[in-house]
Design a protein around this nucleic acid. Structure first.
Length: 235
DNA sequence: ATCATCAGGCGCATTACCTCA
DNA sequence: GCTGAGGTAATGCGCCTGATG
């Protein structure tokens, strides 16, 4: 389609657009018509840069000076880029918020695990302190424990400890979480103590990286595989 | 082959003007 | 009618690139 250039491409405009390089107060700047804008927008959707030949063709078709078309595309690219930046910023901000909330929940989860490990460590040291069983264990550590049977601890007549743990979906794979609680046999306790002794200090920091290497890392990754899904923002 | 110069195009910041609440 | 904000066409400047001598 052809446009009547009379509205925009007048002698006055010629004196300003693309021909004169000096600013004038009388440049009679007019907005492009809706039809012209529509055509330019369509053009821009297919290609954000115009070939020189195409530019001439478009200018002729819309009744604009080629320089006006070039400037329109330049300004359009600038506006588009600015809009893109805004969108990118929004996406980044949303992703950051997701990460921040995930981090918070992971911190809480970690704190819960640390507390569990400390409880277990404390409970397992008790028999060792009292010297009731597993004498070989007592040589391992000096123990500064309490004598009461803390919450959730029961022992039967055969010397088995029964630790009723609060159920947690976050329990470590190394600890059974069946409904009746966790039973730890005195025999083989040394190995378990080795495991439990890896409990973190109260501040939640890991004692050393080597200690963590003895965990079943595959199991941990399996366990947390769902957690890592949020790295993929596109999904 | 290398260098200097020039023209044209682009990005970016800014200006000038128009429109509208 | 005046005014300020926002949108947009146009300008100015610096930079890059390709052509030419």
């Amino acid at each position: 389609m052809m446009f009547d250039g009379g509205d925009n491409y007048t002698q006055e405009m010629m004196s300003v657009t693309g021909i004169s390089t000096t600013k004038t107060k009388n440049n009679n700047k007019r907005r492009f018509s809706d039809e012209q804008i529509k055509s330019l927008e369509l053009m821009f959707e297919s290609e954000t840069r115009l070939e020189p030949g195409k530019k001439l063709e478009v200018a002729k078709e819309l009744g604009l000076h080629p320089r006006q078309v070039a400037i329109w595309f330049q300004n359009k690219r600038a506006r588009w880029k600015s809009k893109q930046l805004e969108q990118d910023y929004s996406i980044l901000q949303a992703n950051y918020n997701i990460l921040a909330s995930k981090l918070e929940s992971l911190k809480k989860e970690k704190q819960g695990l640390v507390i569990q490990l400390q409880k277990l460590n404390h409970l397992l040291k008790k028999p060792e302190e009292e010297g009731q069983c597993c004498e070989q264990v007592t040589s391992m550590n000096s123990i500064d424990g309490e004598s009461d049977q803390g919450e959730g601890v029961k022992s039967d007549s055969e010397g088995h400890l029964s630790l009723s743990m609060e159920r947690s979906e976050h329990a470590l794979g190394g600890v059974s979480d069946d409904d009746s609680g966790t039973k730890i046999d005195c025999f083989g306790l040394e190995e378990k103590l080795n495991f439990i002794s890896m409990a973190e200090p109260a501040d939640g920091s890991l004692t050393s990286s080597e200690e963590w290497q003895s965990f079943d890392s595959d199991a941990l990754f399996d366990r947390y595989s769902s957690v890592y899904e949020w790295w993929d923002f596109r999904s």
